[in-house]
Design a protein around this nucleic acid. Structure first.
Lengths: 153, 153
DNA sequence: TACATTTGCTTAGGTTGCAAAGTAAATTTA
DNA sequence: TAAATTTACTTTGCAACCTAAGCAAATGTA
């Protein structure tokens, strides 16, 4: 293990927020996927459901914004949910460009089963970490995201 | 916007470390991609180069471990690097199962051009954040990763 | 030496993501 | 009202992941 450039260690790519975000993202995904797999819901689908549980009847644009992905990706995901019988897609009568995505009863009934699992993943991830530090970490991650996205230089 | 369950806000999926990791991972990727694109290097390739610059001549297994991906993914990535003339792949003479990956002079010469760009992305991301908080965030992310991966329940 | 296991690489197939370009409906502008 | 623009969705093609299953070389065991 070579260990040069000790000075700016907090910029070290191998321990950067970027690297840590990537491996954490995968770890969270995997943990969640394993928990919810018995319900035939993928982690990708879960992300849409989570948002729709908060507010049912969104356009694909709104869904995209809230999940944090592009509309192109949303199309695929929502089509999958439709196939699985978890959402319906219908053109808005008010604005024919809009595609309204609504939960089916089946999806609504999944809520109380799936939410606790997400909570569980979070609890496992955060075990032994001080709440104060978690708050700091969340603030830092929010800030880095904003720094990289809003102020496009 | 509904706002129930205020109590366990630090478990709120929409502001969880998992969610923040995901959007940060993409933001870092995108920022880096844009900077290094002129050099015909993708962010995926950059991850291998970064490790090889630290230690040249690794097996695909070692590369996978250090980059944090599976060997299956590494095969693809390294084949791409070979096509781009950035690495060579040769069977180890000591152990014929091993595929040694080595940088070409071309890749070695890229180092001094690319590293500063990564540093730049990090600097942009961390702008205005206290070093102390960054240290906390890195520790939290390392811990959540360990919590989710090592202690498989 | 023969058989079983481990290790490292590869292939095949699927998921989640993106950008770019295209379509159709709504809105703005002239 | 006609033309230009914007908005929302879609399609296409690609990148970067993964898991599962398989192969071949090395190693361990009897």
């Amino acid at each position: 293990m070579t260990k040069k450039q000790k000075k700016s260690a907090y910029l070290d790519p191998l321990h950067s927020i970027g690297y840590l975000s990537r491996i954490n993202f995968r770890a969270f995904n995997k943990a969640l996927e394993q928990l919810i797999a018995p319900h035939k819901v993928s982690q990708g689908q879960w992300r849409f459901l989570r948002v729709l549980w908060e507010e049912n009847g969104l356009t694909q644009k709104d869904l995209s914004d809230r999940v944090g992905i592009t509309e192109a990706t949303t199309v695929n995901g929502v089509l999958g949910l439709e196939e699985a019988g978890l959402v319906t897609r219908r053109k808005s009568k008010v604005d024919a460009r809009k595609m309204m995505v609504r939960l089916t009863p089946k999806a609504r009934s999944l809520r109380n089963k799936l939410i606790p699992m997400v909570v569980k993943v979070n609890e496992q991830a955060l075990k032994g970490i001080k709440k104060k530090d978690i708050v700091v970490a969340r603030r830092v991650l929010t800030q880095t995201f904003n720094n990289l996205t809003s102020e496009d230089d």
